[in-house]
Write a protein that binds this DNA or RNA. Sequence first.
DNA 1: TGCAGTGTTGCTTC
DNA 2: CGAAGCAACACTGC
Length: 315
Amino acid sequence: MPELPEVQTTVNGLKNSLVGLKIKDIWTDLAVKKPKRKDYNDTLKSVVFFKKFKKNVINHKIIGSSRRAKNVLIHLANSSTKHRADSKTILIHMKMTGHLLYGKYKKVGDKWQPAEIGPLQDPYNRFIHAVFTLSNGKHLVFCDTRKFGKITLLDSPIEKSPHLSSLGPEPLDKDFNLVKFSDRLFKRPNGLIKIVLMDQVIIAGIGNIYSDEILWMAGIHPEERVKNIPKIKIKEIFKAMKIILKKGIDFGGDSMSDYRNLLGEKGNFQHHHNAYRRKGEHCKKRGCNGIILRKVVGSRSAHYCSKHQKIVIRL
DNA sequence: TGCAGTGTTGCTTC
DNA sequence: CGAAGCAACACTGC
């Protein structure tokens, strides 16, 4: 589930809790000799990579954390004071069901569990597949029900890495303005607006929940083709994008499903949905008496108002 | 009990 | 090149 606001919430937690600590050990049950997919070869799902990863990460100090698209980045201090280019960055992509947790953990048999009573014991915080032991005796834990998540290591400069190089601009960057936004969308003039908004090459960080909410606010049908959207409506989408993503961050992310923050607690954006997962309910837009519909668009489920999000008829 | 549905992405095919 | 479909995986909820 994690989209830009959820990843940002996790990164904010990492900045608060982890900076200055050293990584003392790493455990995972994901690594196998022969990964099923080529793209797993440089992730913790490969035994060979895991060995290399440990060598590069253990005893290194965490100096910061940041977000790029839906990726969590954990920046490590240089391994050598002589070679600046040595600095490494851990990249974690949570995909569908991953999240990072921080606290006291203990290993019981071949499973890890929280050592103390609290939010880390939430049922969705089981399924632990990687554990970083830190120099203060606490742990950074990666739990991921469906095991789609990706953990890898980047050399600097990180933007050159194939894991990041094809990503579009950050929607919340101050200098990402309406003209740039429009230029990005029109790289896919025939694309359906919902699918284009979620295309990480066009713009980074938007997924299914936030695209539904953005289009609801802008009053655009998810299957509208980019080339058919009038300029004034492009501006509405742009404004809605900035507002909705910031609101997501302000509410600490969306925990309608399994997302939890670094301390294992729920976010609150799910209480403020206007479209996502509201099928059959009344539209909340003032003066609108539409009903929220659900339709599969590009093999994703789209939610939109029957009345104020209609396809524009062009003559 | 069984099966449809689930936030993401990258690979393959056309 | 772009669009579409599926596979990676395992659980929840009807």
